[in-house]
Design a protein around this nucleic acid. Structure first.
Length: 565
RNA sequence: AGAGAGGUGGCAGAGUGGUCGAAUGCGACGGUUUCGAAAACCGUUAUACCGGCAACGGUAUCGGGGGUUCGAAUCCCCCCUUCUCUACCA
């Protein structure tokens, strides 16, 4: 909300700013507000002086009552009644005028910063810089809405069943990628000095007004009428409202906070080709960074926020560009906004993944978020930025990194995900096969193909995903496989176990079935561990296993050497 | 969800119809004193709006809203919220 003092003292500046923002009814609205304001002040002056007189009379009446002069008191009461009538009508009119003034003030958008370019729409935005090279994809490259089906990681149909369109279900590696990104973003924000918060995702009406979603953009939020609460469209709302009605001690500035929340947007209408797949959703996840600073530091803070977001995109190895939004394309409450867009190679278009804005005092004025300087209370500046919104990041990661073997994730995510590549065969399927009685299926699956690639992949996947061992050495792989599975597979087993089986007794003490017996001479040493294998395994294909696992992004212990004993 | 008790200035805590924006204590800030500090003493110590160049004056605010009254922190009604017990639940 613009400050009345600014409207009064810098009317021309305000009108110019509103024009730049393409706010059509600026002159009329401002004139109306100033009129109302003048009327309001008259009314208050009149009301206050009447009230002052009434207060004084009340005091006198009190004195007269005490001294027992009832008649005197009654005389004064007559005047009091007149005054009361006057103050009441003045107060009623004052409330009405105030309300009208307030409604008009709420309608006015923030004024743009001087650096904001003129323009009407997205095409007029200024491209500040571009970073990274767009990947060259093969002719068989497909957009993410096909990839998520191929790898079975995000399911829109399931979401429709449970909720409705725009509420996808993230599955398996898809769900884990989401969780990994959230953790990565939060860790990076913390490292950059932001304190992590977990705010509510339902907010009350006052919070909606505080950050400017209400009263104008009511339709964009989901509303629970029963409790009069709104589902947040962004963490900006609860995070910034933490500081509503606060006078922040200057030594606590700047405030830097971050939080991950789901975000909900009704986004009525506008469904089409540009909003397929993950491009626009009703529910999505986002990590937000918020700063509250002294006015003189806010633009420097905005720069650090943009730099922080760029750092994330660089670590994710995504090509991006930074836009300075033009007056007509900016948000209602913003004074300066940088959008960050990521190149989504298969769609061949830029996707907005972040928006970082300085709201100057616009939100602070609504929030009554202030600090004291030289004994005077002053409005602070609020800023926020997405760091980052997940769905379009996921879309770009999927599209840009697609290969015939799977989707190669950037190195920074490997430890967060627990895997380096999204592959076609879901882990759970492998597990199901392993657990099933149908060992033929598994064996077939495992040893299909010339170099046993699929089976090798499966083993690596099982070790990495199922047993959650991030540093998988081939020796470790054998160590961490439960004996029951090893035995059932008839694939490999640790030497001593093989020996006990060959002696006719399993480790559990139950008699071993003869068909699982391993030839005692088929012992291979991997690293420090001696492994008894079945016939299918030898130094050659275990080495191939290591190679394959490495290829799909596992950190294989380089010390793993394979030798036959 | 039911029953009971609360919500007062930065904090603690008085105040149950009349100069109460609010005692007192603590904290914080300024000063006196001191070589310096401590102690002691003196003073200051909310927010918003209106009028005024300013000094200053006025109005409102004791969880929020409404009511009674010449006058409300104090009485009445509604709502929010905290605590205790019961019920239920992750």
């Amino acid at each position: 909300m613009l400050q009345l003092s600014v409207l009064r003292d810098q009317t021309d500046h305000v009108l110019a700013g509103l024009a730049k923002k393409r706010y059509a009814t600026g002159p009329a609205d401002v004139a109306a507000i100033l009129d109302l304001n003048q009327r309001r002040r008259q009314l208050q002056t009149s009301h206050d002086s009447a009230q002052a007189e009434a207060n004084e009379l009340a005091r006198q009446i009190g004195g007269l009552m005490k001294s027992g002069d009832k008649a005197g008191a009654e005389t004064l009461k007559a005047r009091t009644a007149e005054l009361k009538q006057h103050t009441q009508s003045a107060a009623a009119e004052l409330a009405q005028v105030e309300k009208e003034q307030q409604q008009l003030l709420y309608k006015l958008p923030n004024l743009p910063h001087t650096s904001v370019p003129e323009g009407r729409a997205a095409a007029d935005n200024e491209i500040v810089r571009e970073h990274g090279t767009k990947p060259e994809l093969g002719s068989d490259a497909v957009p993410h809405w096909d990839l998520i089906k191929k790898y079975d990681i995000i399911d829109f149909e399931l979401g429709v069943k449970i909720t409705g369109a725009g509420f996808p279900v993230y599955k398996g590696q898809g769900a884990r990628l989401q969780r990994a990104l959230i953790n990565f973003f939060l860790d990076e924000a913390r490292a950059a000095g932001y304190t992590e918060m977990q705010p509510p995702i339902l907010v009350n009406e006052a919070s909606g007004y505080g950050t400017g979603q209400l009263p104008d953009k009511e339709g964009q939020m989901y509303h629970d009428a029963k409790d009069d609460l709104y589902l947040i469209p962004t963490a900006e709302v609860p995070l910034t409202n933490i500081y509503r009605d606060e006078i922040i001690p200057v030594e606590k500035l700047p405030v830097r906070i971050t939080g991950h929340t789901p975000c909900f947007r009704r986004e009525a209408g506008s469904w089409g080709a540009d909003v397929r797949g993950l491009n626009r959703l009703h529910q999505f996840d986002k990590v937000e960074i918020v700063q509250i600073t002294e006015p003189e530091h806010s633009y420097a803070a905005l720069d650090t926020m943009v730099a922080h977001i760029e750092g994330l995109l660089q670590k994710l190895e995504l090509p991006y560009r930074v836009l300075r939004l033009c007056g007509g394309d900016m948000g209602f409450t913003s004074a300066l906004t940088f959008d960050l867009e990521v190149w989504s190679a298969a769609q061949g278009r830029w996707l907005e993944v972040s928006s970082a804005s300085n709201f100057e005092t616009y939100q602070a004025n609504r929030l009554k978020c202030r600090y004291k300087v030289d004994g005077k209370t002053q409005l602070l500046h609020t800023l926020n930025g997405s760091a980052l919104a997940l769905p379009r990041i996921v879309a770009a990661l999927l599209e840009n990194n697609q290969t015939s073997e799977g989707i190669k994730l950037p190195a920074v995510l490997h430890s967060y995900c627990g895997f380096g590549m999204i592959i076609e065969k879901p882990v759970n399927d492998v597990l199901d096969i392993m657990k099933s009685k149908n060992k033929k299926d598994y064996t077939k699956y495992l040893f299909d193909g010339a170099l046993h690639n699929k089976g090798q992949l499966v083993n690596a996947v099982v070790a990495k995903y199922v047993y959650k061992n991030p540093l998988v050495s081939i020796g470790k792989l054998f160590e961490i496989f439960p004996a029951s599975i090893q035995g059932s597979w008839g694939v490999f087993t640790i030497k001593e176990q093989a020996e006990s089986i060959n002696n006719g007794i399993t480790k559990k003490g139950t008699p071993a079935k003869p068909r699982y017996k391993t030839k005692p001479n088929n012992i291979i040493k991997v690293g420090q561990i001696e492994i008894a294998t079945s016939d299918q395994w030898n130094t050659e294909n275990i080495s191939a296993f290591i190679e394959a696992a490495t290829k799909v992004g596992f950190d294989i212990n380089p010390d793993s050497t394979v030798e036959t004993l």
